[in-house]
């Protein structure tokens, strides 16, 4: 089947999509956007997190056909032109990236949380990111990165 959707502001079309394909597969294998990651494909790790009409979801659990006509934002859509989004810069600066496989999903989730809750408590951060597994960092540097991004955001206002 054919699927039309908007990804990171651009209209996209995927052809010959098998009906059982996930949005994640379409993004990665058909649209050349492998930033969203395939760590578990069962909604248990959050590495494939994208925003679907603004809402963070596991793209591995969205059937490709369900994305027809909808707006998707992936990690590739976070940076503005040449400049990194504040959350991306904060992840680099805080040392929150090791192997980096969880990073795209965490960035999309954290970015959305800061949009809703610009000054989160530590418990708020942990709750918002509890659907994103990381195996390398022990999460401490991820906490630092989100705190840093929140602080920079507040200073910037």
């Amino acid at each position: 089947m054919r699927v039309n959707l908007t990804v990171n502001g651009r209209p996209q079309e995927a052809d010959d999509v098998w009906e059982g394909e996930s949005l994640l597969y379409v993004l990665r294998e058909r649209l050349g956007l492998p930033g969203s990651k395939n760590a578990c494909e069962q909604g248990e790790c959050g590495s494939c997190t994208v925003r679907l009409d603004g809402v963070p979801v596991c793209s591995c659990l969205v059937a490709a056909g369900q994305a027809e006509g909808r707006e998707v934002v992936t990690v590739e859509g976070l940076a503005d032109d040449e400049e990194l989004a504040p959350i991306q810069q904060a992840f680099i600066d805080a040392g929150a990236v090791q192997c980096g496989f969880c990073t795209p999903g965490l960035l999309v989730a954290a970015d959305e949380m800061l949009e809703r809750n610009p000054s989160p408590s530590d418990a708020d951060i942990r709750e918002a990111l509890s659907g994103n597994l990381c195996r390398c960092t022990g999460y401490e540097k991820i906490m630092d990165a989100v705190r840093l991004a929140a602080a920079r955001r507040t200073e910037g206002v």
């Binding site: 930033g35 940076a79 810069q89 680099i92 990073t103 795209p104």
Partner: peptide
């Protein structure tokens, strides 16, 4: 490799 990893590239 930090920038590549946070941009998904």
């Amino acid at each position: 490799d930090g920038t590549l990893k946070v941009t998904g590239e």
